[in-house]
């Protein structure tokens, strides 16, 4: 279990993490979601004690990370896959990690096997692709058979087969009762992997809820109506108190009513309908909606247009 309480990290001119409080329980995959620059990696570094918080605190299984002398036996982390000395072999990288925490050297070959890079175990990591480095990083996180796993963007650089493998791995680790905390800037990825989401933007907590709740919270669902008498229908729906926006000549997007209600209103007004359908907000839309005000690097659509 990971517990953050009013966790704050200030740098000279910016606040990377701003009063974050959350709990990551064991036994399920908790997704840590936010746009790039939202403070996810900083939070991860604070959890494993690489950065010291400006204020607030974070504990892992009730203790500060740095109170442990052999932390890898309890907490495994993948922070940056490429942060490995390039002239050391994969196997030697895992060997020193194991030695530093008194971990049985047999684990080195076990985790290499588990992540599927045994064949390149004696190759220098400088020659590795991002996907292979990512697998080595996951192997390092699994080395101490830890109860808590922190993975920062673990699917970066993996091929589709690798991405599926990571999803299955995270699920099985959680089903063994471990705490699995995995960050991503891709909502769609998290929807497939996580049970629960912690969403942050500009260092602040935006949502802490199940995947379904996050979508519902982020944006209401819409009803799409297509009718040759769109203008007449629009005033009828508006009169009923719902939000309605035209989308082209004969299409309306209705918010705040169900299909059934729109159908009844149309029938009462003797209006012909060509289409009446419920539009589910996609995960990406929900995410964009939620983090719109907290995106660090926002592309200027006008600037993009003029450049094109």
């Amino acid at each position: 279990m990971i517990e953050a309480t009013a966790l704050t990290k200030r740098y000279a001119s910016t606040v990377a993490v701003d009063g974050l409080s959350f709990t990551v329980p064991n036994g399920r995959v908790t997704g840590f979601l936010g746009p790039n620059g939202a403070g996810k990696s900083t939070t991860m570094r604070l959890i494993v004690g690489l950065d010291a918080p400006s204020s607030g605190r974070v504990t892992v299984n009730g203790r500060a990370y740095h109170d442990r002398r052999f932390p890898l036996r309890e907490v495994g982390a993948l922070l940056e896959a490429k942060a490995i000395h390039p002239s050391r072999t994969a196997r030697n990288h895992l060997r020193w990690l194991a030695q530093s925490n008194g971990i049985n050297p047999k684990r080195v070959d076990e985790v290499l096997e588990q992540v599927g890079i045994s064949a390149v175990a004696r190759k220098r990591t400088g020659t590795f692709s991002l996907g292979m480095s990512q697998r080595l990083g996951i192997a390092a996180a699994l080395l101490g058979d830890p109860e808590v796993l922190l993975l920062d963007e673990p699917v970066n650089g993996l091929d589709p087969e690798g991405i599926q493998w990571v999803r299955r791995l995270l699920r099985s680790l959680a089903s063994e009762g471990r705490t699995v905390f995995v960050s991503s800037h891709l909502m769609s990825e998290m929807a497939l992997t996580a049970d629960h989401l912690i969403v942050i933007g500009k260092g602040r907590l935006i949502a802490d809820a199940s995947v379904e709740e996050v979508i519902a919270q982020a944006s209401a669902n819409h009803v799409k109506v297509v009718s040759p008498q769109a203008t007449a229908l629009r005033s009828l729906i508006a009169a009923a108190g719902a939000d309605v926006e035209p989308d082209g000549d004969d299409t309306l997007i209705v918010t705040g009513l169900e299909c059934r209600d729109v159908g009844i209103i149309a029938a009462a007004g003797e209006i012909t309908l060509y289409e009446l359908s419920r539009q589910e907000a996609s995960l990406e839309e929900a995410f964009m909606e939620m983090t719109r005000d907290s995106v660090e690097y926002l592309a200027d659509p006008d600037a993009a247009g003029s450049a094109a």
């Binding site: 279990m1 709990t23 329980p25 309890e74 109860e147 089903s175 063994e176 009762g177 705490t179 802490d208």
Partner: peptide
């Protein structure tokens, strides 16, 4: 989010 230990197996070895 405060709900903890959904699966108790790992608790013993924390």
């Amino acid at each position: 989010s405060a709900e903890t230990a959904l699966v108790p197996t790992a608790a013993a070895r924390t």
